[in-house]
Design a protein around this nucleic acid. Sequence first.
DNA 1: CTTCCCTTGCAACTTGGTTGCATACGTATT
DNA 2: AATACGTATGCAACCAAGTTGCAAGGGAAG
Lengths: 145, 145
Amino acid sequence: MCERCNYLEMLQAVGLDPTPLREAVFRCVGEESRPLVAAEIMTRIQSRMSINKVTLYRILDLLVDSGLVRRLSAGDRAWRYGMGASHHHPDHPHFVCSRCGLIECLEPNLLPFDLTRIHPKGKGVVRHVDVRFEGTCEKCLHGGN
Amino acid sequence: MCERCNYLEMLQAVGLDPTPLREAVFRCVGEESRPLVAAEIMTRIQSRMSINKVTLYRILDLLVDSGLVRRLSAGDRAWRYGMGASHHHPDHPHFVCSRCGLIECLEPNLLPFDLTRIHPKGKGVVRHVDVRFEGTCEKCLHGGN
DNA sequence: CTTCCCTTGCAACTTGGTTGCATACGTATT
DNA sequence: AATACGTATGCAACCAAGTTGCAAGGGAAG
């Protein structure tokens, strides 16, 4: 999806040593148009280099903690990993298929107002607002997944 | 939270045989002010009657499938179960603490716009829109959970 | 060349939930 | 009453995704 991001630079900017595996994982997430499951990332990376699943999970944790990557739930028990909000990747709502677990990114400006301006009272600190449209995707509707 | 709901009636309305366990589980979810983890529901029910975890999960599945109950993710790997939208339980956004997994219900009218009017193009059928404010709750902020 | 820290790998483990199958119970049928 | 059938519940074993603990590699610092 995104060839404009300088992944190495972004890793360094958040203080992460840009090792080949970290770059590969981050790039893998960044170049995809939808959030991926860890196993999908694993497969993609292993087509070019070798990586252990523990390492993958640890790198994903680092990326999530640093804010470069966001962890999303699809209703099943595997996380999806998508790009965190940044210059080339503005925050956006998602469509989630509750049947097959597909998550798709929606237009950043789909919502008619800026939710980040809302601050629920007495609820501690809010870091971001997540909007998810849940339903059944085209494929499941027709293919009868 | 809710003593106005007729749980037995609601179960029957969606075509579920209102067995004692089903009523107990549904009531347990309905009387709580925040979505509960399966283990919490388990404990509450076992204080009065005996239930097996498999049965609990199966009942929760039934309730979720029928729409009476909603399954929410807190960022950890355990589902939270809260009331589905209905007359006494209007749809509402949630606050989610990414540190301890707490989910709290927010005011139904917190959002200045009805998100259900938005229909993302070419994305199949949307059943509902979920808004989640993610951050750190008061307790984690101060207690240093 | 030794020390230290950070990254990666491997095996075993944990957790939350699920499957398969047996049992119980209610209702309908003979 | 006895039988059969469908649904609800229970028990034990299992599963998938992710985590822990610990060892090994590798590079910069001393």
